[in-house]
Amino acid sequence: MRRAGWVALAAVLLLFPLSFNNPYYEQLGSLVLLAAISASAWNLIGGFAGQVSVGNAVFFGAGAYMPLLFYKLWQVSPLLGFPAGIAVSLVIAVVIGIPTLRLSGHYFSMATIAVAELIRIVVSNWDFLGAAIGLTGPATPRGWWDLVFRSSNPYYYMFLAVLVTLLAITYAIQRSRFGYDLRASRGGERAARSLVVPVSSYTLYAFMLSATFTSLAGSLYVVKFGFIDPGSGFGILVSINMVLIAALGGAGRLFGPLLGAAILIPLQTETNNLFGGGGTGLTYILYGGIIVLIARFEPGGLFEMWDRLRAKWGSHAA
């Protein structure tokens, strides 16, 4: 039964872009995967370690800017910028994480949003990084290494490979000593400390891993779309998307972010079509409303709701 579920999930993910000969769905599929990558990366720190980052866009932006900056400066493959984005993200994660992860969670949340905003303002005014206009990548590919493809499908499988890697790492962490310690420190920090769990350094490792994969998501975004500006790299909506998608599906659940992305991204595409360009305000109101409702009634997200309903249904049957 469980095995059948895995096979079905794998089949759906692998065959999805091949089952439609329609660019709209192919595009949608890759967007869902990309959102699932950054939300799963957020899940490492926000879900498993219980420290709520509301500024993960800072890593996404770093990951998105570096490949195009490398291309702009030296005309090299954007691929070479991937590790640079990760390096910058790790530095930022350490600068935020070391002082705040020793304190109560509010400091961490406030620091993430303040640093994201700080860097957004600096990037928006820095001509070296294209200021408000941003950066553009290679228009026509010189070889496969420029990662410019006409179809969405190569991106789809690239994103899928990264997502599977990230989920495999998450799964391994969940089952390791490190994972148990992380969950223990989320459940009761003092109790965990008394059991000699090095809470703040473990949380910092989780944050650094989260930063790494969020940066990777930014790099993948930018090779697919070919350009980046301060709003789509460092904007508050980028951070909100990660939090909302993970919390909707289920923060701290392995497949929570993927479920959240599969629901929210198609919905988002539809509402954007429906409201048009002037409707961004309405989209934010809707997001805010969903976030408030999740927080108030279902902080465990859809997965936990499903578990509860199943338990209830199961007890009735018995």
């Binding site: 926000g46 879900g47 219980g50 420290q51 709520v52 509301v54 969670g105 509010h106 949340s109 939090v243 919390a247 923060a251 976030i291 408030v292 999740i294 927080a295 108030r296 902080p299």
Partner: peptide
Amino acid sequence: PMLAQILS
């Protein structure tokens, strides 16, 4: 949970 406090 902390998540609910901050998200709200």
